[in-house]
Amino acid sequence: MALRIHKTLLGQVRNHGEQTYPHECCGVLVGEIDDTANKTVQSVVACGNTRTDSPQNRYHISPAELVRIQREAALAGLDIVGFYHSHPDWPAKWSSTDLEEAHWTGCSYVITSVENGKAVLTNSFLLLGEEQTKHFEDEAIEVDETIQEQQSR
């Protein structure tokens, strides 16, 4: 299991975290997923963080935005394969809140640590199990320059 992503798209993910610092950024990874949970990202969709009450340490993507992204992905023959967010001045590892609020089993949750406004580490975690048994496992990020980027938004 791995997350394949073009370096340009990975750069978009990391830049988003720098742009919103000291607040958390968030967005959706759209692409293809196979039966062994290998994913290839074809586009990155930056979303707004609706947690305006505590944006420095919380994120939430509007369900309306997810509905639109899911519908457009389906029309393109693609799927939502994961999500990303940033941890301002905090390590690039999942927190108990991240696990508690994660419900997209089989998808990747990508986290970038942003220290003093600069993106440092980006890690990916695969959500496995069912709601009662869910857990994250470390997932390799394969930066691939051969992936054809479909549409950058």
């Binding site: 958390e24 340490n57 967010h85 905090w90 927190s95 991240d98 508690e100 609020e101 419900h103």
Partner: peptide, 9 residues
């Protein structure tokens, strides 16, 4: 149908 997406440190 869309499960929610949220989290934080």
């Amino acid at each position: 149908i869309v499960p929610s997406v949220a989290g934080g440190v």
